[in-house]
Amino acid sequence: MTNDVLKRLEAQSLSKQKDFIGNIAKRLGRPVVTERPKHPYQGAPAFWNAFDLPLEERIALFSENWGKAGGHVVRLETMDDAKAWIVGKAAELGAKRLLRQRQDELDALALEAALPEAEVVAWDEPPMEDRRAVAAGADIGLVVVDRAVAYTGSLMVTSSARKGRSVSLLPTALFAIVPVERLATRLGEALRPLDATPRAQLPAGVHFISGPSRSADIENDLTIGVHGPGVVFAILVG
């Protein structure tokens, strides 16, 4: 088609649109709006941006919302306490393989020595082509979250070459360590730092976890753990 034909078709379309809207306005007894309405506010209002709960209230609200989604909360004081809890729970579950992210906090726990009866694997240890299969065969996935959000009861984890998303998506159970200083009140608090991050430095992925995996696709029959961990623990430390 030539440009003249395209312009003529566009004019005809706009004319029909104008007539259509005009007919509706006439039937409603209202004038046709010809200017875009003004929006004096953009984004969250000031009162919501200023909303910030004290720490203990954040912890209580997160625990409540996380529990409503089927997750479990453990409150501990130190990372040494977290290590002892992880070792005990892994033994209780009879875990044969624990897959963890390559994170400094997890390196310091030295779980390989603390769990001699289980295979403890860091994400970046197996060859790249084998990592997904290793994750799918793991009994426990272990991560330290980037942020947690009290108001939504969710965890935020990012992925990179050293932090595979499969660690939190494929094992049977997920243990997520949440340093309490990373627990925000609102979702915007967790997302705002990403807005200020240069594009080249953004993580490969940003994932939000709100309880165990669940599916009700087939006849609305709710099933837990079909597409990911069926048991999830948020381990609040601090």
Rank of each mutant, 00 (worst) to 15 (best):
D146A: 14
R147D: 13
R147I: 04
R147V: 08
R147T: 06
R147G: 04
R147K: 09
A148N: 10
V149Y: 08
V149S: 12
V149E: 12
V149L: 06
A150D: 03
A150C: 04
Y151W: 06
Y151E: 14
Y151V: 13
Y151D: 07
Y151L: 11
G153H: 06
G153A: 05
G153M: 07
G153N: 09
G153W: 06
G153Y: 06
S154R: 03
S154N: 04
S154A: 12
S154W: 03
S154M: 11
L155W: 03
L155C: 10
M156T: 07
V157F: 08
V157L: 11
V157I: 12
V157K: 14
T158W: 08
T158M: 14
T158F: 12
T158P: 12
S159K: 08
S159W: 03
S159P: 09
S159G: 15
S160F: 00
S160Q: 02
S160R: 01
S160L: 03
S160V: 01
A161F: 02
A161M: 05
A161L: 08
A161T: 05
A161D: 09
A161W: 02
A161E: 12
R162F: 10
R162L: 10
R162M: 09
K163C: 11
G164D: 12
G164Q: 10
R165T: 15
R165S: 15
R165L: 15
S166E: 15
S166I: 13
S166P: 06
S166G: 10
S166D: 15
V167H: 02
V167D: 00
V167C: 04
V167N: 01
V167S: 00
S168T: 15
S168I: 14
S168M: 08
S168Y: 05
S168N: 12
L169G: 02
L169K: 01
L169R: 05
L170H: 13
L170M: 13
P171S: 13
P171I: 07
P171N: 06
P171M: 10
T172M: 06
T172Q: 13
T172V: 10
A173N: 04
L174H: 13
L174A: 09
L174Y: 12
L174I: 02
L174G: 08
F175H: 01
A176W: 00
A176I: 00
A176V: 02
